[in-house]
Design a protein around this nucleic acid. Structure first.
Lengths: 138, 138
DNA sequence: CTACATCCTCTAGCGACTGGAGGAGCAAGT
DNA sequence: ACTTGCTCCTCCAGTCGCTAGAGGATGTAG
């Protein structure tokens, strides 16, 4: 029984994003008041929080759609949800590995910068000539 | 003196992406042959590799535009390049921190899944009720 | 000379929003 | 009752960094 603004505050999902989720059918269209304004119930808020949390965990909209439909059929096996989470975990691990490598490279660049002129700038140099990069991850 | 396909192969930037970079003015338009086809010189290839490497490091197009223009004025102080790299380093560090936290949460979800029914699935449960998540990073 | 590969331009689409225009509704103060 | 000012509505366009496809021209090998 709250306005869209209040729903946004409580769920942490921005107002236009809530409307967007409704538009793409991720969130069931809530009922409206006399003046055509959306009224959000507890269930809608819970669903919004579920979505926000899943988005923060990097699940894409399609994965969330599946997770939501699973949530609505509690008798089904959770193998599918588990599979989605595992796939996402593998992606996150991969992303961490490459970011750690990139951080090392950026540190090398920043540390090597002599704060002189561009012509002897390590930052520019490493970007221009990848061979100077100590890491061969990419 | 190579075709766009060969330039793509040597630089690691895909053919449509090379055309896109030209379109947005990140890459100077190369000269053409009789039949209107692009011919890439060594300098173009070097620039493409520079761009690709910077993109891999997560620099956005605007940052790369600045870095490229710095590269072209070697007498200027490299403070600006250093600043861009430092900002990017801070972003990467932040991203790593949050991904590590997310990984922990995903692991908790996957480990807690009893492979039974959705009703007692840890994956769904944690997503639905953020309070069950041990981490308060987000 | 015929296939077939490669190239060209142009336009539209992707994901996941974000922002703005133009107008209606509502709650509080005067 | 009226006005102010906030919130809400819909619709459409834009963001970023590409990616894909249509429809046609050009290049190359047999």
């Amino acid at each position: 029984m709250v306005s869209i603004k209040e729903a946004a505050r409580q769920s942490g999902v921005k107002v236009p994003t809530i409307r967007y989720y409704e538009e793409i059918g991720l969130l069931a269209a809530p009922r409206r008041n006399e003046g055509n304004r959306r009224i959000f119930e507890e269930a809608d808020l819970r669903r919004l929080i579920f979505i926000r949390h899943a988005r923060e965990l990097g699940f894409d909209i399609e994965a969330i759609r599946t997770l939501l439909s699973l949530q609505d059929t509690p008798d089904k096996s959770c193998a599918e949800a588990d599979q989605i989470a595992r796939a996402r975990l593998a992606e996150v691990n991969q992303r961490i590995r490459s970011l750690v490598a990139l951080r090392a490279e950026l540190e090398l660049m920043v540390e090597g910068c002599s704060h002189g002129h561009v012509s002897e700038c390590r930052v520019i140099e490493i970007l221009a000539d990848h061979g100077k990069c100590l890491f061969d991850h990419h």
